[in-house]
Design a binder for these strands. Sequence first.
DNA 1: GCTTGACCTCAAGTTAGGTTGAGCTTGTAG
DNA 2: CTACAAGCTCAACCTAACTTGAGGTCAAGC
Lengths: 147, 147
Amino acid sequence: MAPVKELTVGQVAMRSGVAVSALHFYEGRGLIRSHRTAGNQRRYGRDVLRRVAIIRVAQEVGISLAEIAAAFHSLPEGRTPTREDWNLLSTAWRDGLDHKIAQLKKLRDGLTDCIGCGCMSIDKCPLRNKEDRLAREGTGARRLLVP
Amino acid sequence: MAPVKELTVGQVAMRSGVAVSALHFYEGRGLIRSHRTAGNQRRYGRDVLRRVAIIRVAQEVGISLAEIAAAFHSLPEGRTPTREDWNLLSTAWRDGLDHKIAQLKKLRDGLTDCIGCGCMSIDKCPLRNKEDRLAREGTGARRLLVP
DNA sequence: GCTTGACCTCAAGTTAGGTTGAGCTTGTAG
DNA sequence: CTACAAGCTCAACCTAACTTGAGGTCAAGC
């Protein structure tokens, strides 16, 4: 196989839609990796595009960089991730993602359901009850996904 | 009907599971409202519990306080929201929520799909392609929901 | 060989979303 | 009536996630 052409930071920025400074930042946080040319410039493998795409989509739905980094740690250090590698990450996230989806549906449908209770009978509201139950359990703020 | 009993800030904090300081903060941002007793203490109507519940669930899926506040602005100022009021908010959010759900599913299923491409044929990856298309359009960061 | 645009590092600034603490007031229970 | 938990305000601080700017290097075209 011909060696896959490497990308400069500017090319990655353009293709991924994130700023160069953000790519530097992600690298500092261990989310992406690069090696350097003789002249100390970053060069990226193609898999960085997938990583950045995942970072952006994940962030959009409220997953923190720390959580993304933790998930990415299941990926191999030295080589390009294989299907098994991504599969591991996928299953690691599956539950958390399903939970988020459920939350969104609850929000969407909860609002709809609230039309039925009209806030006159708030004790029946599924949203409120969920939170109130948490309160009774003495639970504070909660994070989704991996603890 | 008997007048619904009002809640102190501490009671709202306990029942909703958010800190008193956060409630003050939300009030400063116009997300919730209170009136004051003769002694300058906050008193909340019952609908504040629903608002806080919505705030928390919405935040968990990556919706900013500004966006929540914007949505809440469709709610009436002076009176307890009716079913029509919440309905308006619901329909205002519906598209954004559906989009978020789609994003999450794409992330979840995209990762699964990536098992098929194994990052060897990254040009076929639905995640990467989506971002790359954005890049070609010269698009920068994007926010969901109302602009 | 020099100019120009893309890179580099590192420090400081920014916005969101709160928390913490000081100093003072309220209200309820003994 | 007095103790003391709960409230109040306001300013300062905090983390996450970046951006901006200063000051200097690299490399491709003319």
